[in-house]
Structure formats: C-alpha cells, structure tokens
Amino acid sequence: MMTARIVVLTIALGAGGVAAYLVSNSEGQQPAPAAPVVQLPTVEVLVAKADIGLGQAIKPGDLVWQTWPEAASNIFIRRGDRPEAANQLVGSIARAPFVVGEPIREQKLVKSDGSGFMAAILPAGMRAISTEISPETGAGGFILPNDRVDVILSKRDKNPDKPGAADSVSSETILTNVRVLAIDQAPKEKEGQNTVVGKTVTLELKPEQAETLARARQAGTLALALRSIADVNASETSKSDTQQQQQMAQRGNAIEIIRYGVSTSQGAK
C-alpha cells in the first residue's frame, strides 16, 4: 500500500515539474510581430450613389466621390483632375445602366442638349423605328431593351392554280442581330397574376434596314427572335446586305449588281 502511494506521489511531482517548465518557457517567448500592412496609393473617383437606369437623366446627388486604387483609376473621372465633374454631369442621360458604386465613364453618358431621350442615346447614322408585337411575336415578353433580335417576316399566299386549296405560308429572316432600344409595356392580367406584355418595340437600324422593315410591315406578319448574349459581337446583316448585294445577273459583257433595290451595271473583267 505504501509503495502505491509513493508511485502516485512521484507521478504527480513529475507532472507538476513539466507544467512549471512549460509555463516558464512560454512566458519568456515574445509574440512574433505582425507583418506591416502595405498601403496602396488611392484617389477619389466619381461613382453612382444609387442605380441609374438606361435613359435616366443625372440629377444632383446621383453621383458621389469614392476612394479607389490609383492604379485602376485611369479610365474614370478623378477628383484631382475634375473637381467639379459631379455638377458638370448633371442633366446628362445614361446610354447604359450604372449600378450603385460603379465608377462613372463619360462614354456611357450623353448630353441631351434639349433633345428627347431616344434622339440622345441613338448613335450617329442610326435610325429608330417601331413596330407592333404581341406575346406570340415577341418571344413571350422576354425581350428587353438592349437585347439583340432577328426580325422574321411571314407571308400567306393563295395558290391561284388550285382554288380552295390551303394558303401557303413562307417565312424569311429580313434583319439579323439588331438592337432593341425600347419596349412599350403595359401590365396584363393573366390567370390571377400580373404579367408584363410589350405591344410596341423600337429597333435601332441603319437607314436601309429601316426601309426594309417598313416594307415588310405591309407585306405580312413580323416576329422577333431573341438572340443569345454570346452573339452580341456578331455582324449586323439584313436580307438587303446578304442577298441583294450579292445577287448579280450577267447581261452580255456587263454585270448588274442589285444593292438595296437599286441596280447598277459594271463592265465584266
């Protein structure tokens, strides 16, 4: 019995000595100093204080100055370069949306100079033309401003050789990859819930494309086909661009080129 007590006492004394040794060592060690924080040079740039929608005019208080890394501020409006920019840009119209905190770039703004919103955001040389749409011809309401669409013309023709026979229907794409400028929308009640349905679409077109669309409106029914956002950089073409420009009829020694419905003759080489 005495031997067991001596063994227990020895173990306790040993554990206490180890604990005392560990405590003394930890008190003698100093904590490692924290690494110094590298301060990046910063400047103040002009940013949107709140979301700014397409076509919205800049009002006093819509823009604020915010600290920004200097290395990434070259394309933005810096306070050191233009301290009065927040006041100078009041009245400008947003050609593209801004989200809250987004730095302002003047390429996305335009001065209206008294013109209407559509005339202000329309690029030089382009035209805005509207046409009627419905849920069936407008991708079910999923087409929104700044989307890209194809315009499809469908025509119903009677067969004069077979009276009473069913009409033949033909469809062709007359415009491709054109930008939607605006959608005239109104709420519509459907199955107890409010949905949004566009009735009129305004497209951004070249002058010759606007003429093609105007003629097509009288020839049949127009439908819009929504394009993928991945096709945004695809070239804009129309039936006039792809077919009429390439149609050539050789007459003798001359070649007739039909462009936008106007024929010109050139000597064959």
Rank of each mutant, 00 (worst) to 15 (best):
A4K: 07
A4C: 03
I6G: 00
I6R: 13
V8S: 14
I11H: 00
I11C: 08
A19Y: 14
L22D: 05
Q30E: 06
A32W: 04
A34G: 01
V37P: 13
V38I: 14
Q39Y: 10
V47C: 09
A48P: 05
L54G: 05
P60L: 08
D62S: 11
D62R: 05
Q66K: 14
W68Y: 12
E70Q: 14
N74D: 11
R78C: 09
G80L: 13
D81Q: 11
R82Y: 10
R82H: 10
L89Q: 05
V90T: 12
I93M: 11
P97H: 07
P97E: 10
V100H: 02
V100G: 06
V100L: 06
R105F: 06
K108F: 13
S112N: 04
D113Y: 12
S115F: 08
A120V: 05
G125N: 08
R127S: 05
S130D: 10
I133K: 01
S134K: 02
P135F: 05
P135K: 12
T137Y: 11
G138F: 12
G138N: 08
G140Y: 11
G141A: 00
F142A: 12
I143T: 01
V149M: 01
I152W: 07
L153C: 02
D157T: 12
D157G: 00
K158R: 14
K158E: 10
S168K: 14
V169W: 06
V169A: 11
S170M: 02
E172D: 07
T173E: 03
T176Q: 15
T176G: 10
N177G: 03
V178A: 07
V180M: 01
L181E: 04
Q185C: 00
Q193H: 13
V196S: 09
V196P: 00
G198Y: 08
T200Y: 13
L203Q: 04
L203P: 04
E204F: 02
P207H: 03
P207N: 04
E208H: 13
Q209F: 04
L213V: 06
A219Q: 11
L222Q: 01
A225Y: 05
L226C: 09
R227D: 03
A230M: 05
D231T: 11
V232C: 01
N233E: 09
S235P: 03
S235W: 01
T237K: 12
T237Y: 06
Q247W: 08
R251H: 06
N253M: 03
I257N: 03
Y260V: 07
G261A: 07
S263Q: 05
S263C: 00
S263P: 02
T264C: 02
S265M: 15
S265I: 15
K269C: 01
